[in-house]
């Protein structure tokens, strides 16, 4: 049995009368690809925001690699190896693709109180950044301004930035949202190559993507996990079919 990398216990977050997260308990094992699915409004994005440290839970604990990270800020979690992509692409639009990734490398290469030497000339930043761009298939686009990349390329760039932080756990918030069929296919293939090497927690609406990638799936409904299991188990689960999958997969 692989070690537990992320352990979420009894996480709660309410907004007024809305229980966005209603006692979620969840674990992610080292090396696995764990997907979270659920209908709109199930609380997936709220959950990701709490895991990434951008939203404080009302109660409950988040343990990461054996450490309680519940009180830590987003940047402190990032430094411990927990990295996220955003549902709405979040990149530096006025920087080139390579600069975007190099910044992510830089964030994890010591402090940045270095005032004189041009960052563009630092091989320690540029080389790993270029390697990651190659890996996600953006090698030819390294010197293009991020704002001028196609939508799918921007999402790939964001994943590249997240990877460049050398994360132990990748939180992917709808990585194929808004992509065309071809772009979606390319992203899924890329994530499939990453699978096994990189622990991933994936929130996604695209069921083809989820069932082809995930080792385990947790189903979130109204802020609660109603089932966790392998894709086959989830397909067969009566509760899940009733609550959710019935209409979409069957």
């Amino acid at each position: 049995m692989a070690e537990t990398l992320l352990l979420v216990t009894e996480l709660r977050k309410t907004f007024g009368a809305l229980r966005a997260t209603d006692g979620i308990t969840l674990d992610v094992l080292a090396g696995e690809t764990h997907a979270i699915i659920g209908p709109n409004g199930a609380g997936k994005t709220t959950l990701i925001a709490q895991l990434a440290g951008m939203l404080r839970p009302d109660s409950g604990r988040i343990r990461f690699a054996g450490e309680d990270i519940t009180p830590l800020s987003a940047q402190a979690r990032s430094r411990r190896g927990l990295a996220r992509s955003f549902q709405i692409t979040s990149i530096y639009r006025d920087f080139t693709a390579l600069d975007n990734v190099a910044l992510a490398v830089q964030a994890h290469a010591g402090h940045s109180f270095r005032f004189w030497r041009p960052a563009h000339e630092e091989r320690a930043l540029r080389q790993p950044a270029q390697a990651i761009l190659n890996e996600v298939g953006l090698a030819a686009r390294a010197d293009v301004l991020a704002a001028n990349l196609a939508h799918g390329e921007q999402r790939q760039l964001e994943v590249a930035m997240v990877l460049a932080t050398g994360p132990r756990l990748l939180l992917l918030d709808e990585p194929v949202a808004g992509m065309g069929a071809e772009e979606t296919q390319r992203m899924i293939e890329f994530l499939a190559r990453l699978k096994g090497r990189q622990t991933m927690l994936l929130v996604e609406h695209d069921m083809d993507a989820v069932f082809s990638l995930a080792d385990r799936i947790s189903v979130l409904v109204y802020g609660r996990v109603i089932a966790t299991g392998t894709p086959a188990e989830i397909r067969a689960n009566a509760d899940v079919r009733a609550a959710y999958l019935g209409e979409e997969v069957a």
Binding site: M54, S78, A107
Partner: peptide, 9 residues
């Protein structure tokens, strides 16, 4: 937000 998410304060 992105700057914090990649680990800078």
């Amino acid at each position: 937000a992105r700057t914090q998410a990649i680990g800078f304060s």
